[in-house]
Design a protein around this nucleic acid. Structure first.
Lengths: 220, 220
DNA sequence: ATAACATTCAACTAAATAGTTGAATAGATT
DNA sequence: AATCTATTCAACTATTTAGTTGAATGTTAT
């Protein structure tokens, strides 16, 4: 083996991982799996793909070893293979956010509803939680909350919010978070809560961003 | 814009970055550029590609904003656009190393010459440098050394090693490093030095790995 | 056993990609 | 002005990829 052959082998291996990140749909799958393990069916629904196509993309991720799966009843549950895969996905997002101007603008428009909805940072959240002036709610599906969540958050899936307003004292503000800065659930929750007369903010982060700051143990 | 359109837009943008990482040749280009800015010609030579193909891959990286360029005389020098791009490239390598068994095995065989060549870690290097029992040499091309190097390293490009043995006292060991754990220059240097009677090791890291540990300022 | 269900597989099409070749461009040198 | 040099561009080919459709597999419930 000469140097060129060596490089072709090594970069060929690296590219197996790289190729996994080259499709928008696979990136979306990885993001969903970073919240909690999921069945093929639920991933297909969430990404608006056919079951067969979803399965094929998952096979590609499996081939590159970015995911693993386990079978339960007649479902197959996929999950991220390790924390390094999460870090890779966040590193890719960092680059895209920093380098591609369209992203921030689109988020501003859709997630923040052109400033109709106000975001707060993790630092501000911590202040407000310490001062006991806000309730923190996790509006993702319950199983994602159970799989790991920000400390002191209460689980109220956005689909059930209207039935659980009694959990939210009106004299306190509300901070809602969901899958991360590009997930719309928290925005929907905040819009609803403001309509009901609450002071409410979206957190510009999710469980994974929290974990990057405070460690794996902090979200258990 | 509804949620699906938003996701398609956002993940479409993320995938622009992802697509850049899907070709072995582009990953190799990014790795080379992580050492120092380089001309199209020198990148073509180093990657064994035609000039035209190299240029085309660089255009792709430019489109995704992972690199920038500057013109000087009749050369075009490309460079990484920011540190976040370096972090992404290292995160991808981490995943590949952790998940794909073939990589470690191939490195063992080619870089460590099936254990004919011994590697040491950064921690061990620091001990040895403190104890003053080794000379640390940077065997990359001189301009890469000048663009940033590990503290206390001396620059002896591997191509000039045989003419500069006087810089290496025989009573001390030698640690050689180059572009990182998958670069063969340090291996070649160590093989030569051992033949000449030195005790010599390759460092299992390069300037970028050092920088991740000790910060940007540490390599100036 | 049979039916229902979740997932995978195989065959196919349309589109995107990597690479080649040769020409075009544009700055520097003679 | 003419020539040389580094790079880019355009046209083309072979290969890979994303997605669809419909059938096959294998587990669970009736």
């Amino acid at each position: 083996m000469n140097t060129r052959e060596f490089k072709e082998k090594i970069y060929g291996e690296f590219a197996k991982v790289g190729k996994s990140l080259s499709s928008p749909k696979r990136l979306e799958l990885l993001d969903l799996l970073s919240q909690s393990p999921k069945s093929v069916e639920s991933l297909a629904k969430a990404t608006n793909m056919s079951i067969a196509n979803t399965s094929k993309h998952l096979q590609a991720l499996l081939e590159a070893q970015l995911v693993t799966f386990s079978k339960e009843r007649n479902y197959v549950y996929y999950q991220l293979a390790s924390e390094s895969v999460l870090k890779l996905s966040l590193a890719l997002r960092d680059v895209a956010e920093e380098r591609l101007a369209g992203i921030e603008e689109t988020r501003q428009r859709f997630i923040l509803r052109d400033n109709e909805v106000e975001a707060i940072t993790i630092e501000k959240l911590i202040e407000k939680v310490k001062a006991n002036t806000v309730t923190l709610i996790d509006v993702r599906p319950a199983e994602e909350y159970e799989s790991g969540h920000i400390p002191n958050a209460r689980s109220i899936p956005v689909t059930e919010l209207q039935d659980h307003l009694e959990m939210l004292p009106k004299e306190k503000g509300v901070v809602a978070y969901c899958r991360g800065p590009y997930c719309a659930y928290a925005t929907e929750a905040v819009e609803y809560l403001r309509m009901k007369g609450y002071e409410a903010w979206v957190l510009d982060a999710g469980t994974n961003e929290w974990m990057q700051l405070f460690g794996k143990e902090s979200i258990k």
